[in-house]
């Protein structure tokens, strides 16, 4: 007789048992800022800001909207706008395929969510760029969605917030992307003439044609701590001048010191900061 035998063959697992075991993988990880071990839940409770060193982890567009809108609720606009690949562009893969892969991987058709809702009771329009979608790059869809959001702000007399995170204009749509810089900037001129406030929030990273258009055109330009913000990317500059760049170059604090940001605001304070600014400008 075998040493080990199964006395009964039909043991039923208690359905609650599976839930008693907790998967520990991915629960702990290292902070990119201070290298301390962090508990993921503690980080989530602190809006993805390291409780030890204040390092701001990147958050996606939907998470950002949740932090800003009252009750984390909003109405989304123009969510079905999608690029038609006007250049028939092919790089390492076809742009069409790249787009559809992104559209499957993320719950969006392009690199931006345009939303309306209330912020501390005040109706506002908020656009948030999604860095995960082809680097948050700006093509014809982003240009159109932001322009419509600005026009909506003018019609409804609602202030505007744009939260940027982008590598710049989308190469795969060529000069069409480039012209979106004008389209959005011109619409912001109309918002300006309508005397409605626009707050630009620049998060890590914001570079290229996005910085060189709407991200720098806020009545207030607000940076998140430690965000890379610039026109040219640091690698391009290093190649041009053939030198290593100094520590902290093109970070939010650097831009604040050089007069291009109005404030550097920590993520947990952002909603209150924006709300107070609108109060001071409008009430």
């Amino acid at each position: 007789m075998a040493w080990f035998t199964r006395p009964t063959t039909n043991i039923k697992r208690d359905p609650a048992e599976a839930e008693r075991h907790v998967k520990t993988e991915g629960l702990w990880f290292k902070c990119d800022g201070c290298r301390q071990i962090l508990w993921r839940k503690a980080l989530e409770e602190n809006q993805q800001v390291c409780p030890h060193c204040g390092f701001h982890f990147k958050i996606d567009a939907a998470a950002r909207l949740k932090l800003l809108f009252d009750d984390g609720a909003w109405e989304e606009f123009d969510r079905d706008l999608a690029s038609t690949d006007p250049l028939d562009f092919v790089d390492s893969k076809r742009y069409k395929d790249r787009l559809s892969a992104m559209q499957r991987a993320l719950p969006m058709k392009d690199a931006l969510i345009s939303a309306g809702g209330t912020l501390n009771g005040r109706p506002v329009n908020i656009c948030v760029l999604e860095l995960k979608f082809i680097g948050g790059s700006m093509g014809s869809v982003m240009g159109e969605k932001i322009t419509r959001a600005i026009e909506r702000s003018i019609t409804r007399r609602a202030p505007l917030v744009i939260v940027s995170a982008s590598g710049g204009a989308r190469m795969q749509e060529g000069a069409i992307s480039l012209m979106q810089m004008v389209k959005i900037s011109a619409a912001l001129m109309r918002l300006d003439e309508a005397r409605l406030p626009y707050i630009s929030v620049l998060t890590d990273p914001t570079t290229g044609g996005v910085t060189a258009s709407f991200a720098m055109l806020g009545d207030l330009n607000i940076g998140e701590p430690g965000a890379l913000i610039g026109f040219a990317g640091p690698r391009v500059i290093e190649q041009t001048i053939r030198q290593k760049l100094p520590e902290g170059f093109q970070r939010s604090e650097f831009l604040l010191n050089h007069g291009f940001l109005d404030a550097v605001v920590k993520r947990p304070d952002l909603k209150q900061y924006i709300s107070q600014s609108f109060d001071l400008l409008l009430n």
């Binding site: 690029s83 006007p86 093509g139 240009g143 749509e173 069409i176 979106q180 004008v182 389209k183």
Partner: peptide, 12 residues
């Protein structure tokens, strides 16, 4: 400039 880049579709 407002009309530039109308290369998108709005299908559901």
């Amino acid at each position: 400039f407002r009309r530039m880049g109308n290369f998108f579709e709005e299908a559901a």
